[in-house]
Nucleic acid binder design. Sequence first.
DNA 1: ATACGGTTTAACCATATGGTTAATCTATTT
DNA 2: AAATAGATTAACCATATGGTTAAACCGTAT
Lengths: 210, 210
Amino acid sequence: MSTNTFSDTEHQILEAALLEFSTHGRQGARMQCIADRAGLNKALIHYYFRNKERLYEEVFRYVFQRYFRRLGETLRRDGDFPTVLRAFINRYLDLLNENPALPMFLLREVSEGAPVFSRRISEIVEISPDGMPYLLLQLFAKASSSGEIRHTDPFQALISIMGTCIYFFAGFPIFAALMPELQDRREELVEQRKEHIFELVYYGLKPRTE
Amino acid sequence: MSTNTFSDTEHQILEAALLEFSTHGRQGARMQCIADRAGLNKALIHYYFRNKERLYEEVFRYVFQRYFRRLGETLRRDGDFPTVLRAFINRYLDLLNENPALPMFLLREVSEGAPVFSRRISEIVEISPDGMPYLLLQLFAKASSSGEIRHTDPFQALISIMGTCIYFFAGFPIFAALMPELQDRREELVEQRKEHIFELVYYGLKPRTE
DNA sequence: ATACGGTTTAACCATATGGTTAATCTATTT
DNA sequence: AAATAGATTAACCATATGGTTAAACCGTAT
């Protein structure tokens, strides 16, 4: 059940399910819609994934295992604080830009009490000191204690950096509804955003001389 | 339908519905659960709000009208850039802390294509130059042109400040699942966060002399 | 050619759930 | 006290939807 080799058909189902789940939520998702999206018969989904709940779990794991792994990679490379920080931000924004539905998928799960995330957390994210969350905390903790940034709670910094990245994608539709002209500038704004976040976080945390 | 005077019963329904909708989403919400939560008969909900869709719309408007209005208030008061910035951050975090379910409610709606938000946008948020989004953009635009902060796209700043505030509440459960010790520090972290975000944004945007 | 295992499908079933209805209760007016 | 209108309830209905099943399809080995 935790194998990662999926057939073509399974992949089609997973991709369709990801879209359906992230736009309509676990309960709002319709098996028939997933089947239609994937161009397959509904019974096939049950054949491969038994039921909606297991499909959801499989999609969730399938997607976020990769997501957290790719995010963590950037933190394991050598480099000084600003270099690693920049790499993390760029990777994060690229990941989100490739699949803007992911944050909502995760946030939805979490707002429902994160039953699947909690139950299968060990498969999804490394909780060890070599996993993404801990490495990111470490990044700030080290820079903080070496004096490269001012004394900062690493947790606050973690929330800030992830929030500034995620909210661009999660909140974009809100502001696009208010200011339609943003829609066309989207790609440009993503690139601009990399620089903006880096400067905000780096210079926002740097010790002040005055 | 857009009156704001609700009877006790209606209020109970609205509050119960808000909880149910924000944890389970529009489709996942169950009319029976809302009735149970409110301690009322299910048919009463239909009596007052006709059907699920209209109930959802009413709750949505009821909640976010107030939310955006209270957020906008802080931007209409006099004061220099850091003062207004601080007031906005504090108000925002207090609002979210009072009702941590709100961001998810809004984000869910948005990820479903924001049909209700779009349709009733004019009742929910002032789109005029005196409304919250525009005032916040103005705040940064003015500070930017007066040289108080370095040249910055106001939209990027808007996303950053809202993202850092919201994500604390939206993402908190994720990190609380990974680091259980955070749960007890929540209130303390909210207060600490006000200062953290202010410093990050203010000093992150300030012109650099070096 | 045929038998067989894995895959795919149309048709079907059971049930959860949104919504209705008709009766009852309650308070206010006359 | 009778009447009226609004509020509330239990019982019910229709249907959407998750899930099942049995048959058909298809490639491959014998």
